[in-house]
Each structure stands twice: as C-alpha cells, then as structure tokens.
Write a protein that binds this DNA or RNA. Structure first.
Lengths: 121, 121
DNA sequence: CAGTATCCTGTGAGATACTG
DNA sequence: CAGTATCTCACAGGATACTG
C-alpha cells in the first residue's frame, strides 16, 4: 500500500489524474455535466467544436475512469444519458481551483506573453 | 475589458491556463522549482527523463507566460538560474488542489479503470 | 439519435549530435 | 554548462461518410 505519492515521478499514479485533466476535452465534458444530465447530442452542442468521434473517445475514457456514468435506454430512436458520478463530482473542486486561478490571473499571463512576444519576435 | 470567462468556450483566456497546466512538462518544472532556485542541469536531474530540447522549450514557454524567471550569469562556464515568479508561486495553490485530489482519489480511478478493462477487453 | 469506420494531418516530443 | 540544430515518429484529434 502506497501512502505517499511523488508527482515528480512519471510513473506516479497522481500523474494519471493530471493527464486526464490535461486532456484537451475532459474539462469541457466535466464542466458541461456539472449538475446536469445530458444526452450525447446535447453534449456536442454545448461543447461546440468537438466531433462525435472525439466526444465518444473522451466519454469512454471518463467512463472507464469512473468519473462519468452512461445510461442507455432501449428505445427507438436511441437515448443515452451521461452524468457525473460521485467521483466525477468531487473532481469539480480541484478544477474549480484551477478555474478561479485562471480567471484571476489570466490577464497577467497574457500581458507577460505579449511582452515577451514583442522582444522575442 | 472582459469581466467574466466561460471555460466552455475554446477561445476563452481561461483555456490558456488549462493548456499550460495540461502541458506534459509544466507541472514537473513548477513543482521542481517550488521553493527552490535551480540551474538548468539541476532541473534536468530532478525531472528525470526530459531531454534538453524539451526542457528548454518548456522553460521558454513558462518564462514567456511570466511564471518562471531566468537569470543568466556572464561567467565561464555559464550559469543560469531559474526560479518561480510571484505569479508562478500563486499557481502552486491550484496545482496543489489537483494534487490533493489525485492523492485522495487515484486508487478509485485506478480501480474503475481496471474494472472496465476486464470487461472492455 | 448515437454512435462507427476510415482516412489524414499537425505537432509534441524523443534521439542524437553539435556549439558558444 | 547550457543550451541549439536536425531528423523522425507516434498519436491525438479533425473531416467525412456510414449504420443499428
């Protein structure tokens, strides 16, 4: 039983989470499902520029990690609902922390970026 | 002046931060520089499997975003020191939130992953 | 509606070798 | 020591078309 993790180690399980969060589409899906139950098509609409293939991949990954629950109804036409699991909901907190930091400091980052671009170019 | 951000929008400035954090090497560098001033070679050692090229790219990006400060000394042999800026330090907090979540919940994610792998395969 | 199936491309990043 | 310079490749992810 491992009791402590070292994020600096590439094979550390913590890295798993960072990879997932860092994934291009994960955040969008998690945020969209915040407090909502959505169908495949609804997710597509809300996220915008995502293709069905990529949305499916993202959803499958999230499902596999126990963050999102998928419920299919045997109807015609088909209906499938996605929602966050308890684990998925708990992920909203750290994501919120990142988001708050972003909203507070993005302008500084953008300023710095612009300033270095002037010189760099 | 934009007063509110929507992370669900791909062109939202907040996305900038998520991209940066999601970058494969950013976290490693930020964590390594936590409370430390390190030279290029020291960073290489601590991070492990990173190549000089990639470390340079990561460092330049971080510098450009105002998260890391680079100080070069005109000596022979050359000496260059990297440290977090105040902005970089402030980023430690949200990263810490993610890290804590990871340390608490990784086992659940891994369990779920394993369970779905059994079925999926 | 909720996906699959294919094909294709950009680029993050590794390996390797060289330089001020 | 602290990087640059090339070359190469895998793979995330996009476009498009099709199906139970």
């Amino acid at each position: 039983m491992q009791t402590s993790y070292d994020v600096l180690s590439p094979n550390c399980p913590s890295r798993v989470v960072l990879n997932r969060i860092g994934d291009r589409w994960t955040i969008f899906v998690i945020m969209a499902l915040n407090g909502q139950v959505l169908r495949f098509g609804e997710l597509r609409e809300r996220i915008g520029a995502i293709t069905p293939k990529v949305l499916t991949e993202t959803l499958r990954a999230l499902e596999g990690d126990g963050l999102v629950a998928r419920e299919a109804f045997a109807e015609m036409p088909p209906r499938v609902e996605y929602r966050l699991t308890a684990l998925g909901v708990s992920l909203l907190e750290p994501i919120g922390a990142v988001r708050r930091w972003a909203e507070t400091h993005v302008s500084e980052v953008l300023d710095a970026r612009e300033r270095s671009a002037e010189v760099g170019a």
